[in-house]
Amino acid sequence: MRREWIHAGLLLAPALVLLFAFTHLPAIQTVIDSFFSTARGRRPSVFVGLANYERLLGDAIFMRAMVNNAIYAAITIPVSIGLALAMALFVQRRIAGRAFLRMAYFTPTVLPLIAVANIWLFFFLPGFGLFEQLRSLIGLSPRNWVGSPDSALYAVMMVTIWNQAGFFMIFYLAALQTIPDSLREAAAIEGTPRWVFFRRVIWPLLMPTTLFLSVNATINAFRMIDHVFVMTQGGPNNASMLLLYYIYEQGFRFWDSAYAATLTVVMVVILAIVGIGQFFLMDRRVHYK
């Protein structure tokens, strides 16, 4: 019996050590750092209590980033998931060129986001970008998509959705394959309309996948910012500033590691609440087999 415990401990040790060294310790360190001032070469770090958190409340750019991130999440999550489901339903059917279509939908996910963002930046360029050329064909006046505060955030969202919808589609496709054909045949015999069949049978059976994807999409909404670096750098005038980009800016451009730690604590708290909430709220409506 004791031998088994030792074995179990030894087997767990590598994972535990890595988890503590690279996840838990830094997280705790971050919380501690958020109560201190940033050390500069000539001024050591001192305990400042909640000063960093007070600063946060008065920081207009932080507020802007929070609002932007909320809009960003509220749009990218449902749209990516909806699009993924639509694409999965479409390419699941027996249609000509199915393999090609599936591949085409999945390709955006394989490309690195930085490269994707550079390509999209040229699509969006005013005057000679792809969208502009399409618009000029139908006689519309040019628009500066990433350079105007009212469209910059949406331009960034578009790239996110385009990039992650294909990835989510794969999960829906896999889930759809597991739904037995007999259900569809039974519904057909009963004369169930297709929409009712989708709403009453397929959608509930896809619920675990939808939950998984919505957790993922939420994390992505806070985590994927590579394209912000390339496309807008949070501009114009912070119109496309997202929380993680702001953390990067404070931490690695302004070298204000204490304030960056404070912002990180906020982000971790938000993600924890969202993650826990999703599991508890949606758990009731999810049918696991």
Binding site: P126, F128, N144, G147, G235
Partner: peptide
């Protein structure tokens, strides 16, 4: 001059393309 924020990196390209 075009309205809005004009991209720094695309400037040589915009010049060479005649934009």
């Amino acid at each position: 001059m075009a309205p809005g924020i004009l991209d720094w990196g695309a400037t040589p390209r915009a010049f060479m393309d005649g934009e």
